[in-house]
Write a protein that binds this DNA or RNA. Structure first.
Lengths: 212, 212
DNA sequence: TTTGCACTGTTAAATGAATAACAAAATGGA
DNA sequence: TCCATTTTGTTATTCATTTAACAGTGCAAA
C-alpha cells in the first residue's frame, strides 16, 4: 500500500511550499502569469536549484524557457497543503498578538478560517474583537465541538499557557501553535509547534554581534 | 589565529541555547538550583542526548548525579549569546503586533532593550506606545544613529515593508527581523530573518490534516 | 566494601537537507 | 538549418544535524 506521495516530502520543503505560494501570489497580483525558478529563489533568499528540487518533489513541471505557470503552481500547492473542505482555527487570548494575527490573516486564506476567539477577560468575551466573535474560555468545549475546530493558536499570557492548552486539548484541538513564552505539553496525537519571539530576536542579535 | 570558539557552534544549537535559558529561568523561578539533561529535554520536546551535546559544544560541564547548575548555565549562555554592553532594538510599525512584542519583551532581557518605535501614523508618532517612545518614520536616521541601534523589528503592514526596510538599512540597522507577510531585500552585511505567521499556521494545519 | 544505578561526556554512525553537476530540450539568432 | 543560450529536471555528492553507542564516574544501598 503506498502512502499518499507527499508523505515523504521533507518538512523543510513543506514550509517552503507555503512560502512559495505567498510569493507567487505577490507576483500574480502584479499581473505576471509565469515565473522562473531563479525569480522565486530570489524572493525567498534561497537557490534556484532548491526551488526546482522542491517542485520536482511535488511533481510539478514547468516549461523550458518559459518557467512555471503561476496559477497552476498556486493551485497545485493548494491541493497539497490545504484541506479540500477547509479547516477552522480558533485563537486563545485576544490581546495584541491575537488581534495582530486575526488582522494578518483576514482574507488571505480561503481554506483556513479563524472562526472564534476565546478570552477570560469579561470585557472581551461575548463581543466581536477584530471582527471575530470572542467567547469566554468556559465555552471552549462547546464551541470547539460544535464548529469542529481542530487548530488553536495560543496567544494568552505566559502564566496561563499550561491551563489554556489543557482546556484546548480536552476540547478536541489537534494542532497547537504556541506563541506564548512558556513551553507547553500536549499528548502524542496533538501536533505542537512552539514559536518564541524573544528567541528569534536573540538570534538576530547574536548574529549581528558575531559579524562585527 | 583561532576564531572565538563558538563560531563553529551549529545554528540550531544557538537557537536552542536561547530556549534553554528561558526554560532554565522558569525552573529557577520555581526555586530549583540544578537540573538534569532529560528535564531540559522534556521542556523543549527534544532528547536528553541533544541537550548534553549542545552543552558540551559550549564547554559546560554538569556534575554526575546532580545535573547542571541552573544559575551557572544561565550565566554561561548569557556570556555566549548576549553582547556584554547590551544591544538596542527598534520596532518599525506600532500596530497590534508591535505592541505585542513590546509587552512580551518587557523586563525579560537585560542585555537587549527595545528603545524606540517608529510609525507613519501621526496619531502615534511623538507619543508613548506601550511605554516606548514612538517617532515618526522620517526621524529614523537621526534616532538610529544617535542611539546606536543596530537591530530592527519590522511589523508594518505588508505593503510598506520594502520601503521601510530600505530606510532602516540606510539608517544603519544591521539585523532585521521581518514579521511582515512580504519578503524583503537587504544588503549582504545585514542579517535578515523572515518569519511568516501564516506559513506557521499553514504548517500546523497541514500536519493536522496529514495525521487524520 | 562492593555492586548496581543514574547520570554525564564524547566519539561514531545514521539521517536529513542543501548543493553541485550535468543531461535534455526549447528558443532565437546567425 | 544549425548553433549558442537559457532554462528545467534529476542524480550524485557534500554538508549539517541528530541519534546511537558506550565509557566513565559518583552515589546509594546492601
Amino acid at each position: 500500500m503506498e502512502d499518499r506521495f507527499f508523505k515523504n516530502i521533507p518538512h523543510r520543503t513543506i514550509e517552503r511550499l507555503s512560502q512559495y505560494r505567498r510569493a507567487l501570489q505577490i507576483y500574480s497580483d502584479k499581473g505576471k502569469t509565469s515565473i522562473f525558478s531563479h525569480q522565486i529563489a530570489a524572493l525567498l533568499h534561497i537557490t534556484a536549484v532548491q526551488v526546482r528540487r522542491d517542485l520536482m518533489l511535488i511533481g510539478y513541471s514547468g516549461s523550458l524557457r518559459k518557467g512555471y505557470d503561476i496559477n497552476d503552481l498556486i493551485t497545485l500547492i493548494g491541493e497539497l497543503i490545504d484541506s479540500p473542505d477547509g479547516q477552522k482555527v480558533a485563537i486563545f487570548g485576544m490581546g495584541d498578538l491575537g488581534r495582530a494575527i486575526i488582522n494578518y490573516f483576514r482574507g488571505k486564506r480561503e481554506k483556513l478560517k479563524i472562526v472564534a476567539g476565546f478570552d477570560t477577560n469579561p470585557e472581551k468575551a461575548n463581543h466581536e474583537v477584530a471582527g471575530i466573535h470572542c467567547y469566554p474560555l468556559e465555552k471552549t468545549a462547546e464551541i470547539i465541538g460544535k464548529e469542529g475546530i481542530k487548530i488553536g493558536i495560543l496567544t494568552v499570557p505566559g502564566d496561563q499557557a499550561d491551563e489554556t492548552v489543557r482546556i484546548m486539548v480536552e476540547a478536541g484541538i489537534k494542532g497547537v501553535l504556541n506563541y506564548t513564552p512558556t513551553p507547553v505539553e500536549v499528548p502524542d496525537d496533538v501536533y505542537l509547534e512552539e514559536y518564541n519571539m524573544i528567541s528569534s530576536i536573540e538570534k538576530v542579535a547574536f548574529y549581528v554581534k558575531e559579524r562585527q
